[in-house]
């Protein structure tokens, strides 16, 4: 059987908030190392990869490899029934056709359980090559969300340009042009507010705002976001899940015809 117990249940709630606008259904692949999910959005423009390591759970048992196909809209509705401070346990028998979510209040006075049917999803997985990125930008997640929200008003694409001076986000459209430049922060008292850039070579790429906006739903998960870029390859937008994993969004660039 499979059983995973997470005392910090709100992490799982936030992971679903990070996925539900982009994916309607996906498979959770469970093994003794932990839980992974990989899926493309319906238009095959972006890919999401989630990893939750076993050692991040307070109890983790996975007797046999298990792939649980779920409707993420339904899963999100169930997880919304959990309070932010609830302990969340996910349980499933081997070869099961349903999964059970158990929500326990911290004082154990209230226990709720929800059973959801599983789906047969024959989702092929994509190989993601290890890449030594030309530029890796780390910035406050809320800052990135604000930049994308503001520039989305100007156009349907954002140009992200990284040089040694800093990183520039630009958008142009009918109402005009918007440019936001972020310089590397010199010294900050709080690490989480820093903007840091590791650059091997300058890189400039164009991406659709629609997907970047959906990625920033993961802002609730982590104080910082990491953007990794290389010429002519997908952008990686990564949010940590506590110290037990990550949500990684890959977005194909828009390329000159």
């Amino acid at each position: 059987m499979f059983e995973a117990r997470l005392v910090q249940g709100n992490l799982l709630k936030k992971v679903l908030e990070s996925l539900k606008d982009l994916l309607t259904e996906a498979s959770w692949d469970c093994a003794d190392t932990g839980i992974q999910l990989q899926a493309m959005d319906n238009s095959h423009v972006s890919l999401v990869s989630v990893q939750l390591r076993a050692d991040g759970f307070d109890k983790f048992r996975c007797d046999r490899q298990l792939s649980m196909g779920m409707n993420l809209t339904s899963m999100s509705k169930i997880l919304r029934c959990a309070a932010n401070d609830d302990i969340i346990t996910i349980k499933a028998q081997d070869q099961a056709d349903n999964v059970t979510f158990v929500f326990e209040s911290p004082n154990q006075e209230k226990v709720a359980d929800y059973e959801m049917k599983l789906m047969n999803l024959d989702q092929e997985h994509l190989g993601i090559p290890e890449t030594d990125y030309a530029a890796v930008i780390k910035l406050p997640a809320a800052e990135f969300q604000r930049i994308i929200k503001d520039l989305s008003q100007f156009g349907e694409s954002v140009v992200i340009s990284c040089t040694k001076e800093g990183v520039k986000f630009s958008a142009a459209g009918d109402i005009g042009v918007g440019n936001i430049k972020l310089a590397q922060t010199a010294s900050v008292d709080k690490e989480e507010e820093a903007v840091t850039i590791e650059m091997q070579e300058p890189v400039t790429l164009t991406f659709a705002c629609r997907y970047l906006n959906m990625f920033t739903k993961a802002t609730c998960l982590a104080p910082q976001v990491t953007l990794s870029m290389s010429p002519e390859v997908p952008l990686v937008v990564e949010y940590k899940i506590g110290d037990m994993g990550h949500v990684r969004y890959y977005l194909a660039p828009k390329i000159e015809d």
């Binding site: 493309m40 095959h44 423009v45 972006s46 890919l47 092929e124 997985h125 994509l126 190989g127 993601i128 090559p129 694409s157 164009t206 659709a208 390859v233 997908p234 890959y250 977005l251 194909a252 660039p253 828009k254 390329i255 000159e256 015809d257």
Partner: peptide, 14 residues
């Protein structure tokens, strides 16, 4: 004009 590429032209199916 720039055209949107698909993610599965960059990452191969396993």
């Amino acid at each position: 004009t720039k055209s949107q590429r698909s993610i599965d032209t960059f990452f191969k199916r396993k």
